[in-house]
């Protein structure tokens, strides 16, 4: 993609290698009956996705994916496993209707990508609207170099305020459901006693 980064062949090899590993890990997650193994494999999947994001020059997304996907959410899933069993119950071998639905959905999505602009195409609509303004003017308008930060925190400040509120709301919901704080005078459950 970028000739300054050491040749297209190496880039293509890294792309194929990472995407191939992603497919292998995804199949392994589907095949695994042991839930602990499946959780560990999803962590590996997240780490591979983070590497892939880095290849696509999106270090911010890679940071988040590595910390949340491979770190925090894997531990959360392990915590969930501690409350349930480690083995998946054997289900019916192959259900035809969900398989057909999944296949058709996948084919429709693939068909949809045919109309999308090529990867990195500078003439695609998303690069024609406000992006040129951000790229050319944000440095002098904001006084900071990172365009992503100025878009997130200033140009799109309302969106980010909404996102932060959503994160807080999610936590409030979890606290309300799981009882992060006990009511005064309520008996202390056995598992939570210090």
């Amino acid at each position: 993609m970028d000739p300054g980064r050491g040749g297209c062949v190496i880039d293509a090899l890294i792309d194929v290698f990472l995407l191939g590993l992603l497919v292998i890990v995804a199949v392994a997650v589907g095949q695994s009956r042991n839930l602990l193994v499946a959780v560990m494999l999803t962590g590996i999947y997240s780490l591979l996705s983070a590497s892939w994001m880095l290849v696509l020059d999106a270090p911010d997304v890679a940071y988040t994916e590595a910390a949340v996907g491979a770190g925090v959410s894997t531990v959360l899933m392990l915590g969930t496993l501690a409350l349930t069993t480690r083995e998946e119950k054997p289900g019916p071998a192959l259900e035809p209707v969900p398989l057909v639905v999944a296949l058709i959905t996948g084919l429709v999505l693939l068909y949809g990508t045919l109309d999308m602009p090529a990867f990195g195409d500078p003439a695609s609509p998303v690069h024609q609207h406000v992006a040129p303004h951000y790229l050319q003017r944000s440095g002098e308008e904001m006084g900071i170099q990172n365009i992503i930060t100025s878009v997130l925190a200033s140009y799109r400040g309302y969106d980010t305020l909404g996102e932060t509120s959503v994160v807080l709301t999610a936590a409030v919901g979890v606290f309300a459901l799981l009882g992060g704080r006990r009511r005064r005078g309520a008996p202390v459950p056995e598992a939570e006693a210090p």
Binding site: G79, L83, A171, V174, G180, A191
Partner: peptide, 10 residues
């Protein structure tokens, strides 16, 4: 906080 709330259960 979410991790604490989850793990306080088990």
């Amino acid at each position: 906080g979410i991790l604490g709330a989850f793990s306080a259960r088990g």
